[in-house]
Amino acid sequence: MSKRSPIMRHGAPVALAMLLATPAVADEIWITNEADDTISVIDLTSLEVSRTIPVGERPRGITFATDYSVAYVCASDSDTVQVIDPATGKVLHELPSGEDPEQFVLAPDNRHLYIANEDDAVTTVVDVQSRGVVAQINVGIEPEGMAVSPDGKVVITTSETTNMAHWINTETQEIFANTLVDSRPRHAEFAKGGAELWVSSEIGGTVTVFDTESQAELGKIRFDLPGIHPDKVQPVGFEFDGDEGLAFVALGPANHVAVVNAETYEVEDYILVGRRVWHMAFNRDHSLLVTTNGVSGDVTVVDVAARKAVKSIKVGRFPWGAAYRPVD
């Protein structure tokens, strides 16, 4: 594609300089740039972009295999999931994904990828080894948020316009429950060893916590930022710190990440980051959190202990997903 400069495309000069300057390999965070069809690789030692990898059209969801042997990327407008060699950045092959894959989750078996097909109201299950579609499950309109329980028995798809979390039994690949949440659910994560499911609602402005066993609602987290109109507080991506004592919730156009006590569901703090914060990933020891900021085209590096932004790093246009990669 002509819009990318050849230098950015291969990132060779930058990567070379990095190698010369820092011989020790560094952990990385991979960022998908939705409007640039690239991945920006953030070097976690230098906190610079070390590589820019060209991928398919409109990359959004990104995750690594449980053994980090490959990266999976939803190339939404190419209607495919690309499998990438993390060391070289080469696309190894593509997986069937259904139409418009937006977000996905890899089961703990390292084999089954559950993909939300945003335009199709379907969740597609792909076997990454046989590279075949195992099942397609009809879900609500505009599926997006995907989560898998730690034991791999339950997968969640949230649908943005249907406003539900759909609970999928991974043995039968069928929905066994549907729970309503507030408007425009965006992201889901299991917490506390799988005992709880958290779902963010962008337009509703809330995070709903469910008891996994009964699918009953345990609580609802609301956000109140001084000086910011409640309509602009739009929770999207979120992650738990290592011991799950805290949740970090991206608040979209409120340009803040909320720090939520995962026990009491109380908001403890708000951290100012870039514009329209989307998703995030931690580094190895969870001392740093990197957020993607869709509108400002950068990522913010947050010092988790200090609860403060320490650096902004320019990446591509519309940075969306973030995934951590250890390099040993």
Binding site: G140, I141, T161, T162, M164, I175, N178
Partner: peptide, 10 residues
């Protein structure tokens, strides 16, 4: 159509 999809779960 949108309502119908949601309604089918309810």
């Amino acid at each position: 159509k949108d309502n119908q999809t949601t309604g089918s779960f309810l």
